[in-house]
């Protein structure tokens, strides 16, 4: 594999890792580990932890995939590996 492709792969990995960090934070941290303290915060009728667990995490999941799609398209073109 050429250097340039190795660089492409490294960038790809770091994009995936940062998006997966967000994925873990909204679901596991906000929705599970810290749900009890977050529930003390109320946004309208929602206890915040409960909202993350039943609404917020799902909305963020959808956004993450579309962000990944856009960022990767740009990266593919930059390294000339797009279809």
């Amino acid at each position: 594999m050429s250097n340039r492709l190795e660089e492409y792969w490294r960038k790809n990995i770091s994009i995936v890792i940062s998006l997966l960090c967000v994925w873990a934070v909204v679901s596991y941290f906000c929705g599970i580990f810290f749900v009890v303290p977050l529930n003390a915060i109320k946004i309208g009728g929602f206890p915040l932890g409960f909202w993350f667990a039943q609404q917020g995490s799902i909305i963020v999941f959808v956004a993450l995939i579309f962000i990944y799609y856009r960022v990767m398209n740009k990266l593919d073109r930059e390294y000339d590996v797009h279809e």
């Binding site: 995936v16 998006l19 997966l20 994925w23 679901s27 929705g31 409960f50 667990a53 039943q54 995490s57 799902i58 999941f61 993450l64 995939i65 990944y68 799609y69």
Partner: peptide, 17 residues
């Protein structure tokens, strides 16, 4: 019940990435 809501959607992020 959130185990089903998060569990059955979060997998798609893994799948996509």
């Amino acid at each position: 019940g959130s185990i089903y809501l998060m569990g059955w959607t979060g997998g798609y992020v893994l799948l996509a990435l």
